[in-house]
Design a protein around this nucleic acid. Sequence first.
DNA 1: CGGAACATGTAAAAAGTTACATGATTAG
DNA 2: CTAATCATGTAACTTTTTACATGTTCCG
Lengths: 187, 187
Amino acid sequence: MSLPHAILTALLEKPSSGLELTRRFDKSIGYFWSATHQQIYRELGRLEESGLIRVLPAERPARGQKKEYEVLPAGRDELAAWVGRPEDPKPVRDPLLLRLRAAGVVGTGGLVAELRRHLGLHRGQLAEYEAIEERDFPPGPSGAEDRLRHLVLRGGIDLETFWVNWLTQALADVEGGAQRSRSRDTR
Amino acid sequence: MSLPHAILTALLEKPSSGLELTRRFDKSIGYFWSATHQQIYRELGRLEESGLIRVLPAERPARGQKKEYEVLPAGRDELAAWVGRPEDPKPVRDPLLLRLRAAGVVGTGGLVAELRRHLGLHRGQLAEYEAIEERDFPPGPSGAEDRLRHLVLRGGIDLETFWVNWLTQALADVEGGAQRSRSRDTR
DNA sequence: CGGAACATGTAAAAAGTTACATGATTAG
DNA sequence: CTAATCATGTAACTTTTTACATGTTCCG
């Protein structure tokens, strides 16, 4: 259950309104924890009720009016405790790997196009991450926060690199295999 | 929504009862699509209702009695269509990357132990996958189904390798950084 | 004023998780 | 007979997703 902690982190980095948070969950934070605005508004309500965050004063609390939140000490404490709390990695659940397995029993119809499409998407994401790395993390000494953020970005880069390499190999294999089957058939 | 397709794939590979499926979702299939027995029983009910699978005849349909399911032609068709159906990769949502980012704002208390623990878990999983690869996929020519299964296993291996490498680097970085901070502090 | 963009929300459905309930079979 | 294991389920809850609803501000 990490959404509240994602929001606490984002708000500590910079107090924001729901919509501003939504935008940040489409970019930086969203690169490793995605969330929609519905999730965010609901969770903001819960966090406020639990006393972990509060609305910044001087607010007109009405629908359609901007509400800025900031983290209270209790919220910071909760986040600090969560950072070191043991939590096992979730078992993998990847539809593309599953589809490959399914293709083993019902055939690869249409799957090659889908693999190619995913390869393109992952290549695009990788390029985006690498541009960010070049822009935000020049070589040389850096503070603790910057090093941690760079490490997270590195995670994203390495993960996309894995996908690009694996998909490339998968395509070569599936297409090559299809070819081998054809040549066997025609022999 | 891939659980029904995971079950169809498993049932095509071998007709099974709910509990047998549960066990297989703890092993082979579960390596890339996990599911609990509650999910499986509920989904088996739905799939039967939709006419994609059926209970094998010669059954005593009572509580506590084994019920074996098999895939009907409609189920196979649905699975074949799903294999090529476009579906974007889900955005990444990883608690560990998030915790690293959070550590940037509230400090790394307890996180190093957690990173080390995860490194151990991923090393274990990697070893398990590699043992399976050695046992089930000896070098040499192989059929289409085997090649696809091997490809999926390769995905698991590469993914765990990514985690092992990234965690190793993260640990070196976080501990090294802490050391640098300490030596700066004491200067 | 009218429409676009901003901003916050509600409702319902689907998927996943956790805890518990119940009957059948088998080994000691 | 009784405990363990096999086997199938129910119930309650949480999380995520999708679709919709409503009000505000600003620009032309």
